[in-house]
Design a protein around this nucleic acid. Structure first.
Length: 595
DNA sequence: GTTCCCTGCCAC
DNA sequence: AAACGTGGCAGGGAAC
Protein backbone atom coordinates (compact mmCIF):
# COMPACT_ATOMS: atom_id res chain seq x y z
CA UNK A 1 0.00 0.00 0.00
CA UNK A 2 1.22 3.44 -0.93
CA UNK A 3 0.44 6.62 0.96
CA UNK A 4 1.39 9.73 -0.93
CA UNK A 5 2.44 12.69 1.20
CA UNK A 6 2.53 16.17 -0.26
CA UNK A 7 1.05 19.64 -0.16
CA UNK A 8 -2.71 19.77 -0.55
CA UNK A 9 -4.16 21.36 -3.66
CA UNK A 10 -3.45 25.06 -3.93
CA UNK A 11 -7.18 25.76 -3.86
CA UNK A 12 -7.25 24.85 -0.19
CA UNK A 13 -5.49 28.10 0.64
CA UNK A 14 -2.02 28.69 2.04
CA UNK A 15 0.09 26.21 0.21
CA UNK A 16 3.74 26.87 0.12
CA UNK A 17 4.87 23.31 0.51
CA UNK A 18 7.52 23.91 3.11
CA UNK A 19 5.88 26.01 5.80
CA UNK A 20 4.83 24.08 8.90
CA UNK A 21 1.32 25.52 8.86
CA UNK A 22 0.86 24.68 5.19
CA UNK A 23 -1.79 22.09 4.52
CA UNK A 24 -0.55 18.73 3.47
CA UNK A 25 -2.46 15.78 2.19
CA UNK A 26 -2.13 12.02 2.51
CA UNK A 27 -3.58 10.02 -0.38
CA UNK A 28 -3.86 6.27 0.04
CA UNK A 29 -3.37 4.04 -2.97
CA UNK A 30 -4.12 0.37 -2.44
CA UNK A 31 -4.43 -2.60 -4.76
CA UNK A 32 -7.84 -1.59 -6.01
CA UNK A 33 -6.42 1.81 -6.86
CA UNK A 34 -8.98 3.81 -4.96
CA UNK A 35 -7.67 6.66 -2.89
CA UNK A 36 -8.76 8.18 0.38
CA UNK A 37 -7.63 11.72 1.05
CA UNK A 38 -6.88 13.26 4.41
CA UNK A 39 -5.46 16.72 5.00
CA UNK A 40 -3.25 17.92 7.85
CA UNK A 41 -1.18 20.88 8.77
CA UNK A 42 2.36 19.91 7.84
CA UNK A 43 3.29 19.85 11.52
CA UNK A 44 0.93 16.91 12.09
CA UNK A 45 2.32 14.65 9.36
CA UNK A 46 4.79 13.00 11.70
CA UNK A 47 2.00 12.04 14.11
CA UNK A 48 0.04 10.58 11.23
CA UNK A 49 3.00 8.55 10.01
CA UNK A 50 3.65 7.23 13.46
CA UNK A 51 -0.01 6.28 14.05
CA UNK A 52 -0.34 4.47 10.75
CA UNK A 53 2.94 2.61 11.29
CA UNK A 54 1.76 1.46 14.70
CA UNK A 55 -1.51 0.02 13.44
CA UNK A 56 -0.33 -1.54 10.21
CA UNK A 57 2.39 -3.89 11.27
CA UNK A 58 1.04 -6.65 9.03
CA UNK A 59 1.52 -4.99 5.66
CA UNK A 60 4.14 -2.87 4.00
CA UNK A 61 3.34 0.78 3.72
CA UNK A 62 5.32 2.68 1.20
CA UNK A 63 5.30 6.31 2.18
CA UNK A 64 5.56 8.15 -1.07
CA UNK A 65 7.19 11.54 -1.21
CA UNK A 66 8.89 13.80 -3.66
CA UNK A 67 12.21 13.76 -1.86
CA UNK A 68 13.30 12.13 1.39
CA UNK A 69 15.77 14.95 1.94
CA UNK A 70 12.81 17.24 2.33
CA UNK A 71 10.50 15.09 4.45
CA UNK A 72 12.73 12.85 6.55
CA UNK A 73 14.40 15.51 8.75
CA UNK A 74 10.98 16.65 9.88
CA UNK A 75 9.82 13.10 10.61
CA UNK A 76 12.98 12.22 12.49
CA UNK A 77 12.88 15.34 14.58
CA UNK A 78 9.35 14.49 15.60
CA UNK A 79 10.38 10.93 16.43
CA UNK A 80 8.49 9.32 13.55
CA UNK A 81 10.04 6.32 11.85
CA UNK A 82 8.69 5.24 8.47
CA UNK A 83 9.32 1.57 7.74
CA UNK A 84 9.60 1.93 4.00
CA UNK A 85 9.01 4.37 1.21
CA UNK A 86 8.88 5.18 -2.47
CA UNK A 87 11.12 8.12 -3.25
CA UNK A 88 9.78 9.71 -6.40
CA UNK A 89 12.90 11.75 -7.12
CA UNK A 90 15.28 8.80 -6.83
CA UNK A 91 13.08 6.37 -8.74
CA UNK A 92 12.41 8.91 -11.47
CA UNK A 93 16.12 9.31 -12.02
CA UNK A 94 16.54 5.54 -12.30
CA UNK A 95 13.69 5.19 -14.77
CA UNK A 96 14.70 8.13 -16.94
CA UNK A 97 18.19 6.69 -17.37
CA UNK A 98 16.86 3.17 -17.91
CA UNK A 99 14.50 4.43 -20.61
CA UNK A 100 17.42 6.13 -22.39
CA UNK A 101 18.77 2.73 -23.46
CA UNK A 102 16.60 1.23 -26.17
CA UNK A 103 17.55 -2.40 -25.45
CA UNK A 104 16.09 -2.09 -21.96
CA UNK A 105 12.58 -2.04 -23.44
CA UNK A 106 11.46 0.50 -20.89
CA UNK A 107 9.38 3.54 -21.69
CA UNK A 108 8.91 6.28 -19.16
CA UNK A 109 7.66 9.83 -19.30
CA UNK A 110 7.82 11.70 -16.01
CA UNK A 111 4.76 13.64 -14.96
CA UNK A 112 6.78 16.08 -12.87
CA UNK A 113 10.12 17.74 -12.84
CA UNK A 114 11.78 16.38 -9.69
CA UNK A 115 15.43 16.15 -8.80
CA UNK A 116 15.95 19.76 -7.86
CA UNK A 117 17.66 20.97 -4.72
CA UNK A 118 16.56 19.65 -1.36
CA UNK A 119 14.64 21.99 0.88
CA UNK A 120 13.70 20.42 4.20
CA UNK A 121 10.07 21.04 5.02
CA UNK A 122 9.39 23.37 7.91
CA UNK A 123 12.48 25.47 7.28
CA UNK A 124 13.38 28.54 5.30
CA UNK A 125 15.14 28.24 1.97
CA UNK A 126 18.83 27.73 2.58
CA UNK A 127 19.86 31.19 1.44
CA UNK A 128 17.59 32.78 4.02
CA UNK A 129 18.76 30.81 6.98
CA UNK A 130 20.10 32.96 9.72
CA UNK A 131 23.60 32.50 11.01
CA UNK A 132 23.64 30.25 14.03
CA UNK A 133 20.52 28.46 12.89
CA UNK A 134 21.96 26.56 9.98
CA UNK A 135 21.20 23.16 11.43
CA UNK A 136 18.22 21.44 9.91
CA UNK A 137 17.21 20.15 13.30
CA UNK A 138 16.87 23.32 15.28
CA UNK A 139 15.65 25.59 12.52
CA UNK A 140 12.64 27.40 13.87
CA UNK A 141 9.19 26.90 12.36
CA UNK A 142 8.74 29.89 10.13
CA UNK A 143 6.28 30.49 7.37
CA UNK A 144 8.23 31.09 4.20
CA UNK A 145 7.41 34.13 2.17
CA UNK A 146 5.53 33.45 -1.00
CA UNK A 147 7.88 35.03 -3.50
CA UNK A 148 10.97 33.04 -2.64
CA UNK A 149 9.73 29.49 -2.79
CA UNK A 150 8.80 27.36 -5.76
CA UNK A 151 5.45 25.79 -5.08
CA UNK A 152 6.12 22.15 -4.31
CA UNK A 153 4.14 19.66 -6.39
CA UNK A 154 0.86 18.77 -4.74
CA UNK A 155 0.01 15.32 -3.44
CA UNK A 156 -2.34 14.76 -6.38
CA UNK A 157 0.46 15.43 -8.84
CA UNK A 158 2.79 13.21 -6.85
CA UNK A 159 0.18 10.47 -7.07
CA UNK A 160 0.13 10.81 -10.85
CA UNK A 161 3.91 10.58 -10.95
CA UNK A 162 3.79 7.50 -8.72
CA UNK A 163 1.29 5.82 -11.00
CA UNK A 164 3.43 6.57 -14.03
CA UNK A 165 6.48 5.09 -12.30
CA UNK A 166 4.63 1.98 -11.12
CA UNK A 167 3.21 1.40 -14.60
CA UNK A 168 6.68 1.64 -16.09
CA UNK A 169 8.09 -0.82 -13.58
CA UNK A 170 5.23 -3.25 -14.02
CA UNK A 171 5.62 -3.36 -17.80
CA UNK A 172 9.41 -3.60 -17.79
CA UNK A 173 11.00 -6.82 -19.09
CA UNK A 174 12.21 -7.60 -15.56
CA UNK A 175 9.62 -6.00 -13.30
CA UNK A 176 10.81 -7.88 -10.24
CA UNK A 177 14.36 -6.63 -10.56
CA UNK A 178 13.43 -3.06 -11.40
CA UNK A 179 10.89 -3.02 -8.58
CA UNK A 180 13.51 -4.23 -6.14
CA UNK A 181 15.90 -1.57 -7.40
CA UNK A 182 13.28 1.15 -6.95
CA UNK A 183 12.49 -0.06 -3.44
CA UNK A 184 16.17 -0.26 -2.58
CA UNK A 185 17.00 3.18 -3.87
CA UNK A 186 14.07 4.55 -1.88
CA UNK A 187 15.07 2.77 1.32
CA UNK A 188 18.50 4.28 0.78
CA UNK A 189 16.91 7.70 1.08
CA UNK A 190 15.48 6.84 4.50
CA UNK A 191 18.70 5.25 5.71
CA UNK A 192 20.79 8.19 4.53
CA UNK A 193 18.56 10.62 6.40
CA UNK A 194 18.62 8.52 9.54
CA UNK A 195 22.38 8.13 9.58
CA UNK A 196 22.80 11.85 9.18
CA UNK A 197 20.33 12.43 11.99
CA UNK A 198 21.94 10.05 14.48
CA UNK A 199 25.50 10.82 13.51
CA UNK A 200 28.48 8.65 14.35
CA UNK A 201 30.06 8.87 17.78
CA UNK A 202 33.11 11.10 17.64
CA UNK A 203 35.13 11.71 20.78
CA UNK A 204 36.54 15.22 20.68
CA UNK A 205 38.96 14.66 23.55
CA UNK A 206 40.54 11.63 21.88
CA UNK A 207 40.79 13.47 18.59
CA UNK A 208 42.47 16.43 20.29
CA UNK A 209 44.94 14.12 21.96
CA UNK A 210 45.87 12.62 18.60
CA UNK A 211 46.38 16.09 17.14
CA UNK A 212 48.51 17.26 20.03
CA UNK A 213 50.63 14.17 19.89
CA UNK A 214 51.23 14.49 16.14
CA UNK A 215 51.29 18.24 15.64
CA UNK A 216 51.92 19.86 19.00
CA UNK A 217 49.55 22.18 20.81
CA UNK A 218 46.79 23.91 18.90
CA UNK A 219 48.34 27.07 17.45
CA UNK A 220 46.83 30.49 17.94
CA UNK A 221 45.32 32.11 14.89
CA UNK A 222 46.86 31.13 11.60
CA UNK A 223 50.25 29.98 12.79
CA UNK A 224 51.54 26.56 11.90
CA UNK A 225 51.50 23.99 14.64
CA UNK A 226 54.88 23.50 16.28
CA UNK A 227 55.81 20.21 14.58
CA UNK A 228 54.96 21.57 11.15
CA UNK A 229 56.98 24.72 11.76
CA UNK A 230 59.93 22.60 12.85
CA UNK A 231 59.77 20.47 9.72
CA UNK A 232 59.40 23.55 7.54
CA UNK A 233 62.56 25.03 9.04
CA UNK A 234 64.44 21.82 8.44
CA UNK A 235 63.31 21.64 4.84
CA UNK A 236 64.36 25.23 4.16
CA UNK A 237 67.78 24.39 5.54
CA UNK A 238 68.18 21.12 3.60
CA UNK A 239 67.17 22.81 0.36
CA UNK A 240 68.97 26.08 0.97
CA UNK A 241 65.72 27.96 0.42
CA UNK A 242 65.17 30.23 3.41
CA UNK A 243 61.81 31.55 2.24
CA UNK A 244 60.31 28.28 1.07
CA UNK A 245 56.61 27.80 1.66
CA UNK A 246 56.28 24.03 1.94
CA UNK A 247 52.53 24.26 1.33
CA UNK A 248 53.13 25.34 -2.24
CA UNK A 249 53.88 22.36 -4.50
CA UNK A 250 55.18 24.77 -7.11
CA UNK A 251 57.71 26.34 -4.75
CA UNK A 252 58.76 22.99 -3.37
CA UNK A 253 59.34 21.58 -6.83
CA UNK A 254 61.41 24.61 -7.82
CA UNK A 255 63.47 24.36 -4.64
CA UNK A 256 64.08 20.64 -5.21
CA UNK A 257 65.19 21.26 -8.76
CA UNK A 258 67.52 24.11 -7.93
CA UNK A 259 69.06 21.93 -5.27
CA UNK A 260 69.90 19.56 -8.13
CA UNK A 261 67.19 16.97 -7.58
CA UNK A 262 65.77 15.55 -10.77
CA UNK A 263 62.10 15.16 -9.90
CA UNK A 264 59.17 16.33 -12.00
CA UNK A 265 56.59 16.67 -9.27
CA UNK A 266 56.32 16.57 -5.49
CA UNK A 267 54.08 13.53 -5.42
CA UNK A 268 54.76 11.07 -2.67
CA UNK A 269 55.26 8.07 -4.95
CA UNK A 270 57.67 9.96 -7.20
CA UNK A 271 59.74 11.25 -4.31
CA UNK A 272 59.88 7.78 -2.77
CA UNK A 273 60.95 6.10 -5.99
CA UNK A 274 63.45 8.81 -6.74
CA UNK A 275 64.99 8.54 -3.29
CA UNK A 276 65.33 4.78 -3.61
CA UNK A 277 66.47 4.67 -7.22
CA UNK A 278 70.18 5.30 -6.63
CA UNK A 279 71.55 3.03 -3.89
CA UNK A 280 74.67 5.07 -3.20
CA UNK A 281 72.69 8.32 -2.89
CA UNK A 282 69.87 6.85 -0.87
CA UNK A 283 70.88 8.25 2.47
CA UNK A 284 71.41 11.79 1.26
CA UNK A 285 68.20 11.84 -0.75
CA UNK A 286 66.15 10.61 2.17
CA UNK A 287 67.67 13.46 4.22
CA UNK A 288 65.43 15.71 2.15
CA UNK A 289 62.56 13.40 1.27
CA UNK A 290 61.91 12.21 4.80
CA UNK A 291 61.10 15.63 6.29
CA UNK A 292 59.20 16.59 3.16
CA UNK A 293 56.94 13.55 3.27
CA UNK A 294 56.51 13.93 7.00
CA UNK A 295 55.56 17.55 6.45
CA UNK A 296 52.99 16.57 3.83
CA UNK A 297 51.52 13.89 6.06
CA UNK A 298 51.12 16.20 9.03
CA UNK A 299 49.95 19.12 6.93
CA UNK A 300 47.23 16.92 5.54
CA UNK A 301 46.17 15.88 9.04
CA UNK A 302 46.17 19.51 10.13
CA UNK A 303 44.16 20.89 7.21
CA UNK A 304 41.80 18.00 6.56
CA UNK A 305 41.11 16.64 10.04
CA UNK A 306 42.60 19.15 12.46
CA UNK A 307 41.09 21.43 15.08
CA UNK A 308 39.19 23.46 12.48
CA UNK A 309 37.57 20.27 11.26
CA UNK A 310 36.53 19.37 14.78
CA UNK A 311 35.01 22.80 15.30
CA UNK A 312 33.15 22.64 12.00
CA UNK A 313 31.82 19.09 12.01
CA UNK A 314 31.68 17.62 15.48
CA UNK A 315 29.04 18.76 17.94
CA UNK A 316 28.19 16.97 21.16
CA UNK A 317 30.60 14.22 20.21
CA UNK A 318 28.71 13.32 17.03
CA UNK A 319 29.75 13.64 13.39
CA UNK A 320 26.79 14.15 11.02
CA UNK A 321 27.81 13.77 7.38
CA UNK A 322 25.15 14.18 4.69
CA UNK A 323 24.86 11.18 2.40
CA UNK A 324 23.80 11.44 -1.22
CA UNK A 325 22.11 8.31 -2.55
CA UNK A 326 23.59 7.15 -5.85
CA UNK A 327 25.55 10.32 -6.41
CA UNK A 328 27.93 8.27 -8.53
CA UNK A 329 26.54 6.99 -11.82
CA UNK A 330 27.21 3.45 -10.65
CA UNK A 331 24.82 3.88 -7.75
CA UNK A 332 27.49 4.29 -5.16
CA UNK A 333 26.65 6.86 -2.56
CA UNK A 334 28.49 10.07 -2.01
CA UNK A 335 28.80 12.07 1.16
CA UNK A 336 29.53 15.68 1.74
CA UNK A 337 30.44 17.63 4.79
CA UNK A 338 33.60 16.83 6.64
CA UNK A 339 35.02 14.32 4.19
CA UNK A 340 33.03 11.36 5.46
CA UNK A 341 34.25 9.19 2.58
CA UNK A 342 37.87 9.56 3.56
CA UNK A 343 38.16 9.30 7.31
CA UNK A 344 41.90 8.67 7.51
CA UNK A 345 43.24 5.77 9.49
CA UNK A 346 45.16 8.25 11.63
CA UNK A 347 42.07 9.70 13.32
CA UNK A 348 39.78 6.69 13.46
CA UNK A 349 40.58 6.18 17.11
CA UNK A 350 38.42 9.25 17.78
CA UNK A 351 35.41 7.20 16.74
CA UNK A 352 34.94 5.77 20.18
CA UNK A 353 31.97 4.22 21.93
CA UNK A 354 30.66 5.84 25.08
CA UNK A 355 30.29 4.03 28.40
CA UNK A 356 28.11 0.94 28.01
CA UNK A 357 28.02 1.21 24.23
CA UNK A 358 29.82 -0.59 21.41
CA UNK A 359 30.53 -0.22 17.73
CA UNK A 360 29.78 -3.06 15.36
CA UNK A 361 31.92 -2.53 12.27
CA UNK A 362 31.29 -4.83 9.33
CA UNK A 363 33.03 -5.05 6.03
CA UNK A 364 32.06 -7.17 3.04
CA UNK A 365 34.90 -9.48 2.06
CA UNK A 366 35.93 -9.06 -1.61
CA UNK A 367 32.44 -7.97 -2.57
CA UNK A 368 33.17 -7.00 -6.17
CA UNK A 369 34.80 -10.26 -7.30
CA UNK A 370 31.99 -12.17 -5.62
CA UNK A 371 29.44 -10.09 -7.50
CA UNK A 372 31.40 -10.87 -10.65
CA UNK A 373 31.26 -14.56 -9.84
CA UNK A 374 27.47 -14.56 -9.61
CA UNK A 375 26.81 -12.31 -12.59
CA UNK A 376 29.12 -14.23 -14.90
CA UNK A 377 28.06 -17.63 -13.59
CA UNK A 378 31.71 -18.58 -13.27
CA UNK A 379 31.64 -21.72 -11.15
CA UNK A 380 35.39 -21.80 -10.63
CA UNK A 381 35.36 -18.30 -9.16
CA UNK A 382 32.44 -19.22 -6.93
CA UNK A 383 34.40 -22.19 -5.65
CA UNK A 384 37.51 -20.06 -5.12
CA UNK A 385 35.56 -17.88 -2.71
CA UNK A 386 34.08 -20.69 -0.68
CA UNK A 387 35.03 -20.96 3.00
CA UNK A 388 37.91 -18.59 2.49
CA UNK A 389 39.27 -15.27 1.39
CA UNK A 390 38.57 -15.26 -2.33
CA UNK A 391 42.06 -14.14 -3.32
CA UNK A 392 43.56 -16.94 -1.26
CA UNK A 393 41.19 -19.33 -2.97
CA UNK A 394 42.43 -18.18 -6.36
CA UNK A 395 46.02 -18.57 -5.23
CA UNK A 396 45.31 -22.15 -4.16
CA UNK A 397 43.78 -22.99 -7.51
CA UNK A 398 46.78 -21.28 -9.12
CA UNK A 399 49.20 -23.43 -7.15
CA UNK A 400 47.40 -26.65 -8.02
CA UNK A 401 47.38 -25.84 -11.71
CA UNK A 402 50.89 -24.43 -11.91
CA UNK A 403 49.62 -20.98 -12.82
CA UNK A 404 51.58 -17.78 -12.22
CA UNK A 405 48.80 -16.73 -9.83
CA UNK A 406 50.11 -18.80 -6.97
CA UNK A 407 49.99 -16.27 -4.18
CA UNK A 408 47.38 -13.96 -2.76
CA UNK A 409 48.88 -10.64 -3.77
CA UNK A 410 49.23 -11.66 -7.39
CA UNK A 411 45.69 -13.04 -7.45
CA UNK A 412 44.37 -9.80 -6.03
CA UNK A 413 46.25 -7.54 -8.41
CA UNK A 414 45.15 -9.59 -11.40
CA UNK A 415 41.51 -9.61 -10.41
CA UNK A 416 41.43 -5.89 -9.72
CA UNK A 417 43.08 -5.34 -13.09
CA UNK A 418 40.33 -7.35 -14.73
CA UNK A 419 37.62 -5.30 -13.08
CA UNK A 420 39.27 -1.90 -13.62
CA UNK A 421 40.57 -2.59 -17.10
CA UNK A 422 44.29 -2.35 -16.47
CA UNK A 423 46.38 -3.15 -19.53
CA UNK A 424 49.89 -2.39 -18.38
CA UNK A 425 51.89 -2.98 -15.23
CA UNK A 426 51.80 -6.04 -13.08
CA UNK A 427 48.04 -6.40 -13.23
CA UNK A 428 47.95 -6.23 -17.01
CA UNK A 429 50.72 -8.82 -17.24
CA UNK A 430 48.86 -11.27 -15.06
CA UNK A 431 45.55 -10.97 -16.92
CA UNK A 432 46.12 -13.83 -19.38
CA UNK A 433 46.78 -16.20 -16.47
CA UNK A 434 43.57 -15.12 -14.81
CA UNK A 435 41.64 -15.60 -18.01
CA UNK A 436 42.89 -19.16 -18.25
CA UNK A 437 41.58 -19.96 -14.78
CA UNK A 438 38.28 -18.06 -15.02
CA UNK A 439 37.34 -17.68 -18.68
CA UNK A 440 33.69 -17.03 -17.95
CA UNK A 441 34.28 -14.25 -15.45
CA UNK A 442 36.87 -12.52 -17.58
CA UNK A 443 34.74 -12.97 -20.67
CA UNK A 444 31.93 -11.21 -18.84
CA UNK A 445 34.04 -8.16 -18.03
CA UNK A 446 35.38 -8.07 -21.57
CA UNK A 447 31.90 -8.01 -22.99
CA UNK A 448 30.98 -5.00 -20.85
CA UNK A 449 34.20 -3.33 -21.98
CA UNK A 450 33.41 -3.96 -25.65
CA UNK A 451 30.01 -2.35 -25.35
CA UNK A 452 31.59 0.72 -23.83
CA UNK A 453 34.24 0.93 -26.52
CA UNK A 454 31.48 1.50 -29.08
CA UNK A 455 29.74 4.07 -26.91
CA UNK A 456 27.08 1.66 -25.68
CA UNK A 457 25.34 1.54 -22.34
CA UNK A 458 25.33 -1.32 -19.85
CA UNK A 459 23.17 -2.21 -16.86
CA UNK A 460 23.62 -3.61 -13.42
CA UNK A 461 21.90 -6.82 -12.42
CA UNK A 462 18.82 -5.00 -11.10
CA UNK A 463 18.74 -2.61 -14.03
CA UNK A 464 20.55 0.60 -13.21
CA UNK A 465 21.70 1.84 -16.59
CA UNK A 466 24.98 3.54 -17.32
CA UNK A 467 24.81 7.00 -18.88
CA UNK A 468 25.51 7.27 -22.59
CA UNK A 469 28.67 9.12 -23.60
CA UNK A 470 28.21 12.76 -24.50
CA UNK A 471 27.41 14.06 -27.95
CA UNK A 472 30.98 15.37 -28.11
CA UNK A 473 32.26 11.84 -27.48
CA UNK A 474 30.44 10.48 -30.54
CA UNK A 475 31.56 13.46 -32.62
CA UNK A 476 35.15 12.79 -31.62
CA UNK A 477 34.82 9.15 -32.68
CA UNK A 478 33.94 10.24 -36.20
CA UNK A 479 36.71 12.83 -36.47
CA UNK A 480 39.53 11.34 -38.51
CA UNK A 481 41.03 14.68 -39.56
CA UNK A 482 44.40 14.09 -37.92
CA UNK A 483 46.42 11.42 -36.23
CA UNK A 484 46.19 13.40 -33.04
CA UNK A 485 42.39 13.52 -33.21
CA UNK A 486 42.28 9.81 -33.86
CA UNK A 487 44.45 9.14 -30.89
CA UNK A 488 42.29 11.33 -28.69
CA UNK A 489 39.19 9.49 -29.88
CA UNK A 490 40.76 6.13 -29.13
CA UNK A 491 41.76 7.31 -25.67
CA UNK A 492 38.22 8.51 -24.98
CA UNK A 493 36.80 5.25 -26.27
CA UNK A 494 39.06 3.20 -24.01
CA UNK A 495 38.17 5.40 -21.09
CA UNK A 496 34.46 4.84 -21.59
CA UNK A 497 35.16 1.18 -22.08
CA UNK A 498 36.86 0.96 -18.68
CA UNK A 499 33.89 2.77 -17.24
CA UNK A 500 31.28 0.33 -18.56
CA UNK A 501 33.53 -2.61 -17.68
CA UNK A 502 33.61 -1.45 -14.08
CA UNK A 503 30.03 -0.15 -13.99
CA UNK A 504 28.33 -3.53 -14.11
CA UNK A 505 30.32 -4.81 -11.15
CA UNK A 506 30.66 -1.69 -9.03
CA UNK A 507 26.99 -0.87 -9.68
CA UNK A 508 25.70 -4.32 -8.75
CA UNK A 509 27.93 -4.31 -5.66
CA UNK A 510 26.37 -0.97 -4.71
CA UNK A 511 22.92 -2.55 -5.04
CA UNK A 512 23.97 -5.39 -2.82
CA UNK A 513 25.35 -3.01 -0.22
CA UNK A 514 22.18 -0.95 0.12
CA UNK A 515 20.02 -4.07 0.30
CA UNK A 516 22.38 -5.37 2.97
CA UNK A 517 21.80 -2.18 4.93
CA UNK A 518 18.06 -2.27 4.37
CA UNK A 519 17.93 -5.83 5.72
CA UNK A 520 19.95 -4.80 8.73
CA UNK A 521 17.71 -1.80 9.37
CA UNK A 522 14.56 -3.90 9.12
CA UNK A 523 15.83 -6.41 11.64
CA UNK A 524 17.11 -3.77 14.02
CA UNK A 525 13.63 -2.24 13.95
CA UNK A 526 11.57 -5.39 14.27
CA UNK A 527 13.52 -7.74 16.50
CA UNK A 528 13.21 -7.81 20.26
CA UNK A 529 15.67 -8.73 22.95
CA UNK A 530 14.00 -9.98 26.12
CA UNK A 531 10.87 -8.25 24.88
CA UNK A 532 12.52 -4.92 24.31
CA UNK A 533 13.10 -3.07 21.07
CA UNK A 534 16.72 -2.71 20.06
CA UNK A 535 18.40 0.64 20.47
CA UNK A 536 21.24 -0.10 18.07
CA UNK A 537 21.31 2.02 14.91
CA UNK A 538 23.16 2.16 11.64
CA UNK A 539 25.41 5.20 11.92
CA UNK A 540 27.89 4.96 9.04
CA UNK A 541 28.16 3.52 5.55
CA UNK A 542 30.94 3.52 3.00
CA UNK A 543 30.57 1.39 -0.15
CA UNK A 544 31.06 -2.02 1.45
CA UNK A 545 31.33 -1.21 5.10
CA UNK A 546 28.76 -0.34 7.75
CA UNK A 547 28.86 0.71 11.38
CA UNK A 548 26.20 0.08 14.00
CA UNK A 549 26.22 1.86 17.33
CA UNK A 550 24.32 0.54 20.32
CA UNK A 551 24.30 -0.85 23.84
CA UNK A 552 26.95 -3.44 24.68
CA UNK A 553 24.42 -6.15 25.36
CA UNK A 554 23.00 -5.88 21.84
CA UNK A 555 26.34 -6.20 20.08
CA UNK A 556 26.31 -9.97 19.70
CA UNK A 557 22.87 -9.85 18.13
CA UNK A 558 24.00 -7.04 15.83
CA UNK A 559 26.88 -9.18 14.60
CA UNK A 560 24.51 -12.01 13.78
CA UNK A 561 22.10 -9.68 12.00
CA UNK A 562 24.91 -8.20 9.94
CA UNK A 563 26.21 -11.59 8.82
CA UNK A 564 22.83 -13.05 7.99
CA UNK A 565 21.75 -9.91 6.16
CA UNK A 566 24.76 -10.17 3.84
CA UNK A 567 23.72 -13.54 2.43
CA UNK A 568 20.04 -12.56 2.51
CA UNK A 569 20.83 -9.51 0.40
CA UNK A 570 22.60 -11.61 -2.21
CA UNK A 571 19.71 -14.05 -2.40
CA UNK A 572 17.16 -11.29 -2.66
CA UNK A 573 18.99 -9.99 -5.71
CA UNK A 574 20.15 -13.16 -7.42
CA UNK A 575 17.98 -15.87 -5.94
CA UNK A 576 19.65 -18.99 -4.56
CA UNK A 577 23.36 -18.85 -5.31
CA UNK A 578 26.38 -20.92 -4.42
CA UNK A 579 28.54 -17.82 -4.14
CA UNK A 580 29.14 -16.91 -0.54
CA UNK A 581 28.96 -13.37 0.79
CA UNK A 582 30.97 -13.35 4.00
CA UNK A 583 31.50 -10.24 6.06
CA UNK A 584 34.13 -9.51 8.63
CA UNK A 585 32.53 -8.20 11.79
CA UNK A 586 34.44 -6.48 14.56
CA UNK A 587 32.81 -5.52 17.82
CA UNK A 588 34.85 -2.82 19.50
CA UNK A 589 34.78 0.47 21.33
CA UNK A 590 37.41 1.89 19.00
CA UNK A 591 37.02 2.22 15.22
CA UNK A 592 40.77 2.15 14.65
CA UNK A 593 40.74 -1.43 15.98
CA UNK A 594 38.43 -2.56 13.19
CA UNK A 595 40.37 -3.98 10.23
C1' DG B 1 36.26 39.75 -3.79
C1' DT B 2 34.62 35.28 -6.03
C1' DT B 3 35.20 31.35 -9.15
C1' DC B 4 37.54 27.80 -11.16
C1' DC B 5 41.38 24.74 -12.25
C1' DC B 6 45.41 22.25 -10.67
C1' DT B 7 47.95 19.51 -7.48
C1' DG B 8 47.94 16.11 -4.32
C1' DC B 9 46.06 13.16 -0.89
C1' DC B 10 42.49 10.39 1.41
C1' DA B 11 38.77 6.55 1.25
C1' DC B 12 36.68 1.99 -0.98
C1' DA C 1 56.12 7.03 -15.13
C1' DA C 2 51.86 6.70 -14.32
C1' DA C 3 48.54 3.10 -14.63
C1' DC C 4 43.61 1.10 -13.51
C1' DG C 5 37.32 2.07 -11.51
C1' DT C 6 34.26 5.47 -8.14
C1' DG C 7 34.33 9.56 -5.13
C1' DG C 8 35.52 14.33 -1.53
C1' DC C 9 38.29 17.97 -0.21
C1' DA C 10 42.11 21.64 1.01
C1' DG C 11 45.22 25.03 -0.50
C1' DG C 12 47.68 27.56 -4.08
C1' DG C 13 47.21 30.41 -7.74
C1' DA C 14 45.37 32.29 -11.89
C1' DA C 15 41.25 34.14 -14.11
C1' DC C 16 37.22 36.67 -13.68
Amino acid sequence: MYIVLGPADASTGENLGGAVDALWEAITLNDTGSGTHRTFPLGKIADFVQTVEKHNTHRTIRWTWADARMVMPMLLQAGASPSSCHDLRLVQRLLVTAASRAQNGISFTPVLELGKEAQPAGTLPARRQIEGQESLFDAPPITASRDEQEPAPTASLLLEELQAQLTTIKSAPYPGRLGLLAATESQGGIIAAEMKHYGMPWNRAIHEKILEHQLGARPAGYQRPYKLEQLAARLRQELGAPNLNPDSPHEVLRALQSAGFSVTSTRKWELTEWANSAPHLRESRWQVVRPLLEYKRLARLYTANGWAWLDAWVTDNRFHPAYEVASAATGRWGAHGGGAMQIPKDVRAAVHAEEGMLLTVADAAQIEPRILAVMSGDRALAVAGRDTDLYLGIAEIGKRTGSALADRSHAKIALLAAMYGATTGEGGQLMPHLKKLFPQAIGFTEKAAEIGLRGGQVTTFLGRTSPAPSHAWFEAQRDRSSAEKERAAATAARSHSRFTRNFVIQGTAAEWAVIWMAQIRRRLRTERRFGHRLQSRLVYFLHDEIMIYGPQNEAALCATIVRESAQAAAELIFGPTDVEFPVTVVTTDDYSQAK
